[in-house]
Design a protein around this nucleic acid. Sequence first.
DNA 1: GCAGGGATTTTCT
DNA 2: GAAAATCCCTGCG
Length: 188
Amino acid sequence: MSAVLAAALRAGAEHAARSLLGATLHSDLGGVRTAGRIVETEAYLAEGDLASHSAVGETPRNRSMFGEAGLAYVYLIYGVHHCVNVVTGEAGKGEAVLIRALEPTRGHDVMRARRNGARDRLLCDGPGKLAQALGITRAADGGRLLEPGGLWLVGGEATVEEEDVLVGPRIGITKSADLPLRFRLGSP
DNA sequence: GCAGGGATTTTCT
DNA sequence: GAAAATCCCTGCG
């Protein structure tokens, strides 16, 4: 199962961003299982992409992004929220896919408690929200996502039809904001 | 349902 | 010193 996903991640951020749609992100962080289906991603490239954290070179914060495909890159945004990325491409390149939104599949009650009683629909519909719902912090940075552990991925074998994937510009950035590198599953 | 402002850490000019 | 891959609360329709 992971072999297919591992190959998709190595193929590059854009391809990986599509492949991750429909896959499931599991978390045992905090001793409780929570999980969600990935419904929105964004690709951050190594070249020609000024919005990518790797564009400024390797720093202590983004070092995980320069690791091998399948590692987690977790960082703090606006001093308040955490964002989760999946490292892609060749090691040392600096590519990653941001997980933007999940559809909760397991541990709803735990997620609700962590998310201050939010409704199911609002539990994981943003990068910072899903990190909070799954209990993800910088402690998960640099972890392996392709083998069961604190945080890992399941699925990712082309479970999604091409025509159900909507492509558009990325959200919340100012640099390279016109690149069509955001992918999400069509809403019903 | 939609708009506006505050919170708070890391990084770089 | 300010910007940043964001979210929550408030006030108003």
